[in-house]
Amino acid sequence: MNGRLAVPVRDGVGLQARLDRQLGRAAAFVVVDLDGSVEPVYLINEGVQAEQGAGIGAAALLLQHGVTAVAAEHFGPKAEQALRAGGAALYTAPGGLTVAEVLERFRAGTLVRHELKVY
C-alpha cells in the first residue's frame, strides 16, 4: 500500500496516541508511511494557536510531508478544501481510537470515505 496516512492526535505518543476531535487545532499529527518504508513521524501542530486558518495551516503542514490520506473525526470546510486541493483522500474515523486502531481499519478498508459536501 503506497502513500502516507495522517491522523490528528491529542495525547499519547506514537501509534498509541489518540485521535483528536479537531484537525486544524489538533495538538499534533502522526503520519504513517503505508508501505512501512519510513518510520512514523510525529508532527507538533504549531498552528494550534493560530488566530485563524488553523485548518489551512495544518493542511499545508501535512501536504508538505507528502500526506495522501487523512483520517479525522471532523473536517472543517477550509481544511477540507485545502486537503482536497492537495490531492489527499479524506476518511472519517470514530472518536477515541488510537492511531494503531485507525491504521488497522484503514488497511482493512472499513474507514468511511468522507464525501465532498456541496454547500
Binding site: 498552528g47 488566530e51 485563524q52 486558518g53 485548518g55 489551512i56 499545508a60 501536504l63 486541493a85
Partner: peptide, 9 residues
Amino acid sequence: CQYNAILPL
C-alpha cells in the same frame, strides 16, 4: 502569511 490565507500546492 500570518493568517493562513494562502496554501501552497
